[in-house]
Design a protein around this nucleic acid. Structure first.
Lengths: 111, 111
DNA sequence: TGAAGAGTTGAAAACTTCTTCAACTGTACA
DNA sequence: TGTACAGTTGAAGAAGTTTTCAACTCTTCA
């Protein structure tokens, strides 16, 4: 029941709440990657990606290490894969539920 | 690699990104609850709770059913418990990592 | 040393989210 | 019918987030 713990959980989810950050975490599941590659895969402004990477770094979910002029990012925990997998499962259920509603609306229309 | 899917995942996490909403989901894990009880447990303004419940409803992760003058909320999916459980695991790792840094700072101080 | 490339950061503007307060809807019960 | 209670909603202001652009740091290599 401690409020600060709910606060921490909420911050964690907010940290995940951006399409580019999700994309980065998914790419890092296959192993560490230099910024250059993330940039090529995602295709947004470098400074915008940098800002999102900074959010991930601050949370501790990824680490950045410099190797010459390139910076390599990596996940700090293997559990991230599991988190994304469970998320897919829950999301599948939610979207299925929404499509059911859509189908019901369609049926009303036909009546 | 579809962008709209990352968008959907990000929206899902943003939906979870509020302490009151996390609290509500945790309370609903033990079964459906009337607003009155949620209100008593959480202890915020009724209108503020209502706004957060509306966010959860809109996402489809909970349902609201009216029974007389009371409205009862329930989870739509059992998988939410698993999601929260994996989150606890990842968060445990992150916070442990931060405490390690804290410990290192303390050690530097002593040197 | 200095020029070039990789990545990061700061500031301003656009956008989103949260809280509060007042007004509203729906149900029960006298 | 009308009063009271439970819960929701809308609007306005405050606070936080994201994007863009320019400027900056760090490393390499001539």
């Amino acid at each position: 029941m401690p409020l600060p713990l709910h606060q921490a959980k909420a911050e964690f989810f907010r940290m995940l709440g951006h399409p580019v950050r999700i994309r980065v975490l998914e790419l890092l599941q296959d192993g560490p990657r230099p910024v250059r590659e993330l940039l090529a895969d995602i295709g947004i402004e470098a400074s915008s990606l940098s800002a999102q990477l900074a959010v991930l770094r601050r949370s501790g979910i990824v680490t950045a290490t410099r190797d010459g002029t390139t910076v390599v990012y990596a996940l700090t925990s293997d559990d991230v894969a599991e988190l994304l997998s469970v998320t897919r499962k829950v999301l599948t259920g939610l979207l299925a539920g929404q499509n059911e509603l859509l189908a019901m609306l369609r049926d009303e229309e036909r009546a």
